[in-house]
Design a protein around this nucleic acid. Sequence first.
DNA 1: TGTTAGCACTCATAACAATCAAGTGCTAAA
DNA 2: TTTAGCACTTGATTGTTATGAGTGCTAACA
Lengths: 366, 366
Amino acid sequence: MPTKRQAMILAEIVRIYNETGQPVGSKTLMNQLPIHVSSATIRNEMAVLEDDGLITKNHTSSGRVPSTAGYRYYLDNLVQPTAVPQPVFDKIAQNFNHDYREIDEIVKQAATILSSLTNYTAISLGPENAQVTLTGFRVIPLGSDQIIAILATSAGTVESRVYRITGQLDTDDLEKAVRIINDQLVGLPINQVKTKLVTEIPRLLSQYLHSATGFLDLFGDVLKRAAAQHYYIGGRSNLLNFAQPDELDQLKSIYQLLDKENVLPSLLDLDQTASTDEIKQPPMTDHRILGPISVRLGDEFNNSLLSDYGLITAKYHVGQHGDGMIAILGPTSMPYSQLIGLMQLFSDELVKKLFEYYGYFHTDDS
Amino acid sequence: MPTKRQAMILAEIVRIYNETGQPVGSKTLMNQLPIHVSSATIRNEMAVLEDDGLITKNHTSSGRVPSTAGYRYYLDNLVQPTAVPQPVFDKIAQNFNHDYREIDEIVKQAATILSSLTNYTAISLGPENAQVTLTGFRVIPLGSDQIIAILATSAGTVESRVYRITGQLDTDDLEKAVRIINDQLVGLPINQVKTKLVTEIPRLLSQYLHSATGFLDLFGDVLKRAAAQHYYIGGRSNLLNFAQPDELDQLKSIYQLLDKENVLPSLLDLDQTASTDEIKQPPMTDHRILGPISVRLGDEFNNSLLSDYGLITAKYHVGQHGDGMIAILGPTSMPYSQLIGLMQLFSDELVKKLFEYYGYFHTDDS
DNA sequence: TGTTAGCACTCATAACAATCAAGTGCTAAA
DNA sequence: TTTAGCACTTGATTGTTATGAGTGCTAACA
């Protein structure tokens, strides 16, 4: 446990290292610290901090750099969120000042704004709710051999997709099947819909239809799309801002990681399995700081590729419409105090915008 | 104009430089060339090639590297497409061996395969046809204040989107408007639909509806989406394979260029204006080689960012369904002979796959 | 006239030593 | 407990030298 003065020095090292990007020496600290002690005293304190594993040096005679453990301690105990400057606030308000027709537009825009404000890579996850129910399913024939399937949920999302009918299903059968789906499944949470889809529904359908498999595939497909987590990544190219030129290979792997579908939710501990199954093991080191915002650093990921990266996540809550998340991916060394302040404000603004959207229509009946 | 032997030397320089990435010296050439001349002779020939601007050297005593003009000459006169090896062919066939439900799936998959085969960034543009006509438009109410608008074209694409009705339009008016659209516009090419939409249609609608603007916006929006060029970029991260570590800034700009919507078609000289307006100026240096494949190099782009890049494009033709394009973006120095051979084969396979898709349904009525 | 051997020259690159500056650890005194 | 002082370490910078790949040119040759 560092003393108060040691903690102050640690915080100052974090601050200066973040500003300059250079290791911090005892002299620099002496000039910057509010207390007046000599550089030798600071050196002694730094030796203790280093013994505690909170700071390291690149070589025997270099300044000190916060270690991952040092950042961890800083984030858990020392960081103070900074107020967001007015121009930034204005920029957020301005960029969010559109009428959105889809939730996904808002979510996507959130990632874009957040990345452009921070110059890091931003990730946004739309609001999700385990209580989302199926509110309707329709199939409309288009021409002779195509149909469009439309599925609506209580979250206000509508998923539509075109399918080609290969002749196994005629129009009467389709209508019957759709009626069965609506009678049996509307009003149920998506999870229950999924389970019923493999238990009761096939039996029911086969009583009325010749061949139900084609239809089940189709419905299952639209359902999967409607229930899929929607996330967006903004400012991918910002990873290049702080990448080490000699680590291009690693960078490439990270890009591929980001592009790989559905890897992200697992990275964020929002693994899909959590919604259907019990949570098998507690999430990894989940150091809570300042309400819904948490930070994951380097070795706390279960992916060694990210050992030099940090991820700031903020969960947000949109009333009965569920929870979502926004995140910033950057180097381990980020201006956390500013970013955490920004994330607090930004998630509030996002929630407002989402409520505004949901406010237009009634989620209960529809 | 280089002599035959000079051309042979140029081709060999291109080949060796591509394999090794190193400047090519006279001795190396002496050993590799099929003709038996001394290195001094080759030096003399190289001096001529350098005077012609076809090769350059990094410093006074280094080997030679093809200049952009050298590549240009090579591509226009010397390159010989290589046959695609069987394993590569198998991989294409294997990766294309799915049933696709949408054209866009095929187009996207094409970019993915092409990038993974070449380790460069691949771009695919779906088939487009100026003769595509509107085949139908529908509006289906969902609940009390949402509708889904569905627009189908003769190209087989179906565009659907959800809109929120703000109360200006009641159901009767909507039905009327949809009927007018179908009566007046179905069967017309998209371009004509667009022009009529701002000329006759508003008058017609206003005769029957109280306020037509909301509906017109809606229809115009879906139409725009349906008529938009669909392209996909695969293997973005491959740009990192050959990027110079000291040019990360440039790389970042290129990533942003790729992410910027609709910049790509203009890059490919398929600017959208070309389809509606007359082509105002002839496309830039469009050196045709080997049928529908052409290559654009460095300074031939109207973007200085790409001065070190090359773009191999192949136009493909899917019968009456229109033309599309696939492209590979890589460094100026690429194994052109192999890549051109690959592009020829690959675009054929893509066309096959697209015909297979279109074959399922009849484009004339539907 | 085209080709070749030979040679001086150029330049990038690597290896090596010398120097410098930043910063540390430790000791002894206050 | 704090501080001044000092020896020591290390990375970065600079200058020097050697090496090697490759060129351009000249003169001899077919």
